[in-house]
Design a protein around this nucleic acid. Structure first.
Lengths: 145, 145
DNA sequence: GATAATAATTAGCCTAGCTAAGTAATGACG
DNA sequence: CGTCATTACTTAGCTAGGCTAATTATTATC
């Protein structure tokens, strides 16, 4: 088998495995009652701290109008709030509320627990192997190199 | 580090890596001009052959009405077609058209090429390690065991 | 001070998911 | 043989989440 063919077969499997894995995780996340886009944006705000709408949109790789509506929903549910940036009154600053942080942590706990439960079916050496493989994957897809 | 904590840290990384990987792939798939749900359904029809709407919905883990509309779109674009099952005239059989097959293969080629290009930055031993890790992951998340 | 640029929002469109309700065909049972 | 339940799919109508184009408010520039 050529290096080329090996890479392609692996590419297919990698893609398929990622899809199936995330499909399973989404079911868990659904239990939080928040959609994936909101959950993901909220996590950026919770872990990264206050951020402008533009920056949040960029971090989530969506356009500002899309993020504006996601933040609308987060605000309506009391998970985040907007605040005017007094240094530049055009801009808003989005912050997580206490409840937002709590909801996110619960969701993360549920997800990680689910994943860890399945991973626990493996032995220590397999886990280490996955750990190293993830590092390699991150290396392969790291931008700018 | 306890086994438990190790599993949880790994779970987080696994999740995050899968998300970022698929985000990159989606950009490639967008070039085909077909949305992800349609592309995925089309691939089932192309690789699995003719299939009923219900079975296709189940394969894609969506409800029949959702699949009905996806097939509407595939038909409108000339990528697949419906045919009445003569053995059971309630049911329809969905088949890919020649163009559907062609479009899908092109898309797959683009995606695999993109992934393989990045993976080629790694050495043979790293690729083998990823291969083994994917097998472990599939084992860990295989249903019913 | 007029004008250009920037941050966010609003309006309006598309895809993709859902449930509930409707239609058409099949099957089962008295 | 006819009624009634079941099955396969579609239709109608909702929600979430993505987009572009156009507005509004503020800041920066000349």
């Amino acid at each position: 088998m050529t290096m080329q063919a090996q890479s392609e077969a692996l590419a297919d499997r990698l893609h398929s495995t990622a899809i199936h894995l995330l499909r399973l995780v989404r079911v868990q996340d659904a239990a939080s009652g928040i959609g994936p886009a909101r959950l993901s944006a909220l996590s950026v705000v919770v872990f990264g701290g206050p951020i402008s709408l533009n920056d949040l949109a960029r971090a989530e790789q969506v356009r500002p109008p899309t993020m504006s509506r996601i933040v609308d929903a987060l605000e309506k549910d009391g998970l985040a709030c907007r605040r005017v940036n007094e240094q530049d009154r055009r801009a808003v600053i989005i912050e997580a509320t206490a409840q937002g942080g709590k909801v996110l942590q619960q969701g993360r706990k549920r997800r990680v627990k689910f994943l860890a439960k399945h991973l626990s079916r493996l032995g220590r050496s397999e886990l280490l192997e996955i750990e190293r493989a993830l590092q390699s994957i991150q290396k392969a897809f790291r931008p700018k190199a």
